[in-house]
């Protein structure tokens, strides 16, 4: 078993899109440092999807932020392709977010002053990878074609989150990071959005790292892992 699994794992590690090793992070709380992550290891292959679970406050969002290069880790390493995220400067991390990652965060909203169409195109344009046909295909699949000229405030919650999904996928990222993307939606809407997210990621060839509380949703992804006590348990 170990003989078989070891090389398989190594192969997975080598071909991995995302490699997190020994990642640690603590916040400065009122009563001194508060460790949230204490050595997290994680690998994700290209096109693979992983559901990240754990109790509220266990550090799921923190892990995602670190992977996205939005915050600094205290220790450990994050490799995305060959880039070591923790060692990149701001410019490098911004480029990574633009070109390699897509983010769908619960609280990361749309730009209220841009139309749905412009919101959809925004990241692709920033990345210099705007492809009108691909954007239109996304809008079509996300059911947004008729809403392109509206402003976000004129959309329902589910529609808004679909725009966020489209925006994240428009530049054809290799890794989609999603933090409870359906947390604010009712079950039916949530399922619909998640379906689209998974389906379109597959079409785009993007790996997915998604935080969710719902075991039902988690079941639909390739793998599942749970954060507890600052470590990741498969």
């Amino acid at each position: 078993m170990s003989v078989i699994s070891a090389p398989a794992r190594d192969a997975a590690v080598e071909g991995a899109l995302l490699r997190v090793t020994g990642l640690s992070k603590s916040y400065l709380g009122p009563q001194g440092p508060l460790p949230v992550l204490r050595g997290v290891d994680l690998t994700l292959g290209a096109g693979e999807s992983l559901a990240l679970m754990g109790e509220s406050g266990s550090g799921k969002s923190t892990l995602l932020h670190l992977v996205a290069g939005l915050d600094h880790a205290d220790g450990g390493a994050i490799h995305i392709d060959d880039a070591e995220v923790t060692k990149l400067d701001d410019e490098g991390r911004a480029a990574l977010r633009r070109k390699t990652l897509g983010v769908v965060f619960q609280q990361f909203n749309l730009v209220p002053s841009l139309t749905v169409g412009d919101n959809l195109s925004l990241q692709a344009r920033l990345a210099g990878r705007y492809d009108r046909d691909w954007r239109d295909a996304l809008a079509e699949r996300l059911g947004l074609s008729a809403l392109l000229d509206r402003y976000p405030e004129q959309l329902s919650g589910g529609q808004q989150q679909r725009v966020a999904v489209g925006r994240a996928l428009a530049p054809r990222p290799r890794l989609l990071l999603a933090d409870e993307p359906t947390g604010n939606l009712d079950e039916a809407t949530g399922d619909a959005v998640l379906n689209l997210l998974l389906e379109l990621s597959a079409t785009a060839g993007a790996a997915v790292l998604m935080v969710t509380h719902s075991a039902r949703l988690a079941a639909r992804l390739d793998r599942r892992a749970t954060l507890a006590g600052g470590r990741l348990a498969p």
Binding site: D90, V111, L126
Partner: peptide
């Protein structure tokens, strides 16, 4: 919020 979103989707500090 706009600035935050822009940063999150990869606009660099310099830009």
């Amino acid at each position: 919020p706009i600035i935050r979103t822009l940063r999150a989707i990869g606009a660099s500090l310099r830009a």
